[in-house]
């Protein structure tokens, strides 16, 4: 397999705040890599550093056997498409406007979108099922529709590598699974996907490889069944986690083990719900 991205001993973060230290790994063509870990572990930071949005203080990132820092902005945008965690729009841009933005790296500054760009844009919208919504303002769409538009946009960018930062956040089960299935299809056609994931059950089913990050370090990086284990997940997430193979799917089902409320919490809860000392519910008239 061809090595597409090689990360060697990098340290990165914001200003003086180092978030990731001494990270090394490489990604091959066609892989579907899920990056997991608890909130604040450094997953999105890693993705931003790999795309060149954050300064790398030490170490090197090589993409297609060339230093990331040697790429021009537009060259990088033609190699990696990036789906951000959230996007806030001020104006009522339509789906078509948004998807067309994906063609930006391929046009000279004075050029206007041509027939080819429009053809690609429409094919991408058709593929993700939003062609009927082409002239609908994105702000008027549901979360799922919006995400389909953004997927169409990163497809229109026609890059060999796709980065997705928590693309399934806030979506219902149907849309969540759709995104994973979509990425799997892309990988089977030779694209490489790196995705920050919170949906561990879906990662178990769809990702070809899972990387577990904790406190700015990689603590496991392997096929899903080797990473999504009770021991590793419990360590990384700080709660008791079980991973069982589901006989229906043949993949791991991951869930937390319920913990009993301690006495302190119990007392606080009594105050919050308004129970008096005798355990009777107060009605505010006594």
């Amino acid at each position: 397999m061809k090595e597409l991205l090689k990360v060697d001993n990098i340290t990165t973060g914001y200003e003086d705040n180092k978030i990731l230290t001494d990270i090394s790994f490489s990604v091959n063509k066609g892989e579907f890599l899920g990056i997991i870990g608890k909130n604040g572990a450094g997953k999105s930071t890693l993705l931003k550093a790999l795309r060149g949005f954050l300064p790398v203080k030490q170490g090197s990132i090589r993409l297609f056997d060339r230093e990331l820092s040697e790429y021009q902005q537009w060259e990088l945008a033609a190699k990696i498409a990036y789906l951000q965690q959230q996007i806030e729009l001020t104006f009522d841009y339509t789906a078509r406007d948004m998807v067309l933005a994906g063609r930006y790296p391929y046009m000279k500054w004075y050029e206007q979108p041509g027939e080819k760009d429009i053809e690609i844009t429409e094919a991408c919208m058709k593929y993700t099922g939003v062609l009927e919504l082409a002239d609908t303002p994105i702000r008027a769409m549901s979360g799922g529709q919006r995400q389909r538009v953004l997927l169409a946009k990163i497809l229109a960018q026609q890059t060999p590598v796709l980065f997705l930062d928590e693309p399934a956040a806030g979506l219902d089960l149907f849309y969540q699974e759709e995104i994973f299935r979509f990425c799997q299809e892309m990988c089977s056609r030779g694209k490489t996907v790196i995705m920050v994931v919170h949906e561990l059950n879906l990662a178990a089913r769809y990702c070809s490889r899972v990387m577990l990050i904790n406190n700015g370090n990689i603590i496991a990086d392997d096929v899903p069944q080797s990473v999504l284990t009770d021991q590793l997940l419990t360590k990384a997430y700080g709660v008791d986690i079980r991973s069982l193979i589901n006989p229906e799917t043949g993949h791991a089902d991951i869930f937390t083990v319920p913990t009993k409320l301690d006495a302190n919490k119990q007392q606080l809860l009594d105050i919050i719900v308004g129970m008096d000392e005798n355990g009777a519910e107060g009605n505010g008239e006594s």
Binding site: A78, I87, F91, Y104
Partner: peptide, 15 residues
Amino acid sequence: NILALGEAEAKAVGM
């Protein structure tokens, strides 16, 4: 049009 999508989005498409 690209700038109006926000700085992060503009950078992501290489502007």
